[in-house]
Design a protein around this nucleic acid. Structure first.
Lengths: 353, 353
DNA sequence: CTGAAAGCGCTTACAG
DNA sequence: CTGAAAGCGCTTACAG
């Protein structure tokens, strides 16, 4: 088929370009009969407007950029990111936005990224994943431009920055409080990397729960992990001498690794070791483990990030927006029988301001 | 800073818009002195041309689309995809292309995808991941448009289609031949899903090797897996009664799962079971397993896909292009000592036509 | 080597 | 409710 323009459609429909444009953009000021006629021609010809022409004339690219900075090396091992991307892609599709992916592969990429992403006419808004220290500068640089930015995950210095996050402190606290209510005292934790807010916050939640219960914090029960299964395996081997009776792992991957390590050491789950994880991603780890864990709705998280961003794109840039997505404790088999219902623990209400 | 246009730069540099445009696009027909002067103004002002205006006037979007169809559910569990995306993103960055990601989340997405991707002025070319049967139609539809398409992985009906792949048959055959040379006869395999070419081809390679060595194929030694660690674990439990002395797993994830299952059954690796995997992704599984495996250079694969696509974008659409990326057998500890050097096995030369 | 001018294919006040 | 016209910010033959 020949490359049709809006002009061709106008002629075929016997109207002006303006009218075709109005129909295309769903404006209301078109007579119903005219609209039908134009739509018929569009459907018959399979016409789709030229994206670049539309973008130039309307000064909107209908494209959202997703920036994954260097430090997101977990991109390669953590199923979190595919699910996040799924949510973001889905929300983009539903809102007729195109998703542009900016993945920093090298430090040079990272520096070039800013100039590419902030090019006029390329993206209408940006979602950027918060990582560790090295990525803070690009977050702040982007947030200072005139283009709307939503950060996924609380950045280290959140002042004036729009971000979406779950309440990692409260979620971790609720997980550990569950273990405490079951009567455990020697509760260990395998943390995430402590150079990012996620790892820090979940450790804070662990400490809060112990403090609140009047249990002394024992450094021998805290080991730093890296969110991977292998990391959880290694970490638990380090914890073994401390003889924990319960474990809060800051990710399901680490929980699974730790459980394997515990079983290799002859421990029974949950009899000898009660375990709570964190994530509950849609595609679980399989195996024969039915993990009690904190569910974070990653896909919905991605959708909410896009929705919040589009809101700014359409209604004007804001600063200091915070979106909090709920988590929920999902009680399964790795903590033993329990009378406590899961929804006693859910953190209520998606809050925004 | 104000939104500068090419006009502003022209005025500041005391030249015409045409000349600024030539400098921006690296044309040679500009006096050196003039070029320097323009570049200085550009650097001083931080000017970047408006993407949409450039796209419209030049009829190039400098954007590549990556389509991940529905069936790529492995997207959520297989580290293959992040690495592929890394290679693609890196090559896009290096060639100053933007990467647009089209991820089909639902069957409705899948049908809408075609119309979005093929919109004029949006992408200059498309890379689409080959999956199983359900995705063949979108591959063929896209390949029939006037926009260059490169399929990642051989599609089921490859006629007239451009694709890039590794030689899965030869690679699997080389892995199994290694086991045969080590003296093994009862060689099992855990395959990938058999509704895609990857799983089919690696099984074919396994069969080829056995046939060539005059070893009878025993259906009891063949179990279908799903490329995941948990799947490999389950699959090996099914293989146990058949008492294999060696195993070719069609992915490293499955190999790791199988090794865990074997150890749980009291088998020693490699003494009781020699294992070869497939993938050797940059970020391995950790653990204490030093896997002998077939290395496929996924990142380079992504780069080659982009390079091949850009070649078509710049030098005209082609049909039936085939790019083959090399694999290599990497001998480590899971097959026992061996005198055979790894590079005796490499499949030589990146071939193109 | 450089500039004036037409054109890329849309959108959007403006006028009616 | 509809159309003529200007404009979005570039690129690219064409002429010199």
């Amino acid at each position: 088929m020949p490359e049709l323009t809006i002009e061709d459609i106008a002629i075929k429909a016997g109207v002006s370009r303006s009218t075709v444009s109005r129909v295309l953009n769903g404006r209301s000021n078109v007579r119903d009969e005219t609209r039908q006629c134009v739509l018929e021609v569009i459907n018959a010809t399979g016409y789709r407007p030229h994206a670049a022409a539309h973008n130039l004339a309307s000064q909107r690219s209908e494209t959202i950029g997703l920036v994954l900075p260097l430090s997101v090396s977990l991109f390669f091992s953590d199923p979190y990111f595919p699910h996040l991307i799924k949510g973001i892609a889905q929300a983009c599709n539903n809102n007729n936005y195109t998703l542009a992916l900016f993945l920093a592969g090298t430090p040079e990429d990272q520096t070039k990224l800013f100039s590419r992403v902030s090019q006029k006419g390329l993206v209408d808004g940006v979602i950027i994943q918060s990582g560790h220290h090295g990525d803070q500068s690009i977050i702040h640089e982007l947030s200072q431009t005139s283009i709307p930015v939503m950060v996924a995950g609380r950045p280290l210095q959140p002042d004036g920055i729009n971000y979406i996050d779950i309440d990692n402190v409260a979620a971790a606290q609720m997980a550990v409080e569950h273990l405490i209510k079951l009567g455990h005292k020697r509760i260990a934790t395998i943390t995430g990397p402590l150079d990012g807010t996620v790892g820090m916050d979940r450790l804070q939640g662990y400490c809060n729960a112990l403090n609140k219960a009047g249990i002394e914090i024992d450094a021998g029960l805290i080991v730093t992990g890296d969110f991977t299964e292998a990391g959880g395996h290694t970490a638990f081997q380090k914890l073994l001498p401390a003889r924990p009776e319960a474990l809060f792992a800051a990710s399901d991957n680490m929980a699974v690794g730790a459980i394997h390590a515990a079983r290799e050491a002859g421990l029974l789950i949950p009899e000898d070791l009660a375990v709570v994880g964190f994530d509950d991603l849609p595609i679980a780890n399989g195996f024969d483990i039915n993990l009690t864990t904190v569910r974070q709705p990653v896909v919905d998280f991605g959708i909410a990030a896009v929705t919040g961003l589009i809101d700014m794109i359409k209604h004007g840039l804001k600063r200091g927006v915070r979106i909090c997505v709920d988590t929920e404790l999902v009680i399964r088999d790795t903590c033993g029988a329990s009378m406590i219902k899961a929804n006693d623990y859910s953190i209520n209400g998606m809050r925004r301001n």
